[in-house]
């Protein structure tokens, strides 16, 4: 652990990416509904799930 660990940096970068995606003003963008489900609901859970999938990919890949 002398040098910065690339997996940790990628995960941290994902975290930093999540901050603007999951806060205002971007959060006010989705409006209306899709298939009867509010777009905001879909957006929040979609971005969240996307972050989780990416994190899982980054974290489990190095093994």
């Amino acid at each position: 652990m002398k040098r910065a660990n690339p997996t940790r940096q990628r995960l941290a970068a994902l975290g930093l990416l999540g901050v603007p995606l999951l806060t205002y003003p971007l959060l006010s963008l989705p409006s209306g509904e899709l298939g009867g489900i509010p777009a905001t609901y879909l957006y929040l859970f979609g971005v969240w799930a996307g972050l989780i999938v990416l994190a899982a990919w980054v974290a489990e890949r190095g093994k």
């Binding site: 660990n5 941290a12 999540g18 999951l22 929040l44 972050l51 989780i52």
Partner: peptide, 18 residues
Amino acid sequence: LSFLTIYIGPTLMLLCVG
């Protein structure tokens, strides 16, 4: 939907594994 903040914060914090 504001209850979600309580769970988004930990998600983002945990990504700072370092």
